[in-house]
């Protein structure tokens, strides 16, 4: 457990860290969940945990990204998504930019991406999301207790599995 800063104490640097890190934390969760609204819920949970922790300020960005990825995957796997969020995933403002959406995934496919991520081994899913959120191999290695050399293998397996999952489902539809 992260050591509490003190009984009930909220860390003094919370707002500063929040304003710097919030967009990235939401983006990490949104890559898993495919929904900005739900990602914002996850970000709130993560910052609520962070605000009473003693994670050093210099390490907060990494900690928050990892916590966001884990918490978002927990949401996927525990099926705690609310029905309203299911709907929200389909709202236009949560959609991908049109050029990408046209060529790769439509909104319906976001749901399949979530399902595919939920089926990946945890370590692969986390490595994949963190890498595509811009964390370096060294940072991903640190988050997952891997050697930097094996991050490439883990990410590669995850990408290959993700594509197979999505193609399998695409062809069965």
């Amino acid at each position: 457990m992260v050591t509490p800063a003190g009984p009930g104490a909220v860390r003094a640097d919370l707002e500063q860290v929040f304003r710097t890190a919030y967009p990235r934390v939401v983006a990490v969760a949104a890559r898993v969940l495919g929904s900005r609204d739900e990602a914002e819920d996850v970000a709130q949970e993560v910052f609520l945990t962070f605000c009473r922790s003693s994670v050093p300020a210099g390490e907060s960005a990494g900690w928050l990204s990892v916590a966001a990825a884990h918490t978002a995957l927990n949401h996927l796997r525990s099926g705690r998504r609310r029905a309203s969020r299911e709907e929200a995933a389909g709202e236009p403002r949560n959609a991908l930019s049109p050029d990408v959406a046209d060529t790769v995934v439509a909104i319906e496919e976001r749901r399949r991406v979530r399902a595919a991520l939920a089926r990946l081994p945890r370590k692969q899913a986390i490595a994949l999301v963190l890498r595509h959120s811009g964390l370096s191999y060294t940072e991903v290695a640190a988050a997952l207790d891997l050697s930097p050399g094996s991050v490439g293998t883990t990410v590669r397996r995850a990408e290959s599995a993700l594509r197979k999952e999505l193609n399998r489902h695409a062809s069965s539809h």
Partner: peptide, 21 residues
């Protein structure tokens, strides 16, 4: 392919997020 599938570019409202937190 994975990059496109996981792409997310919609910036959240940080002020609103901070008020909520």
């Amino acid at each position: 392919f994975a990059g496109a599938a996981l792409r997310f570019e919609d910036a959240p409202d940080t002020d609103e997020g901070w008020r909520r937190l």
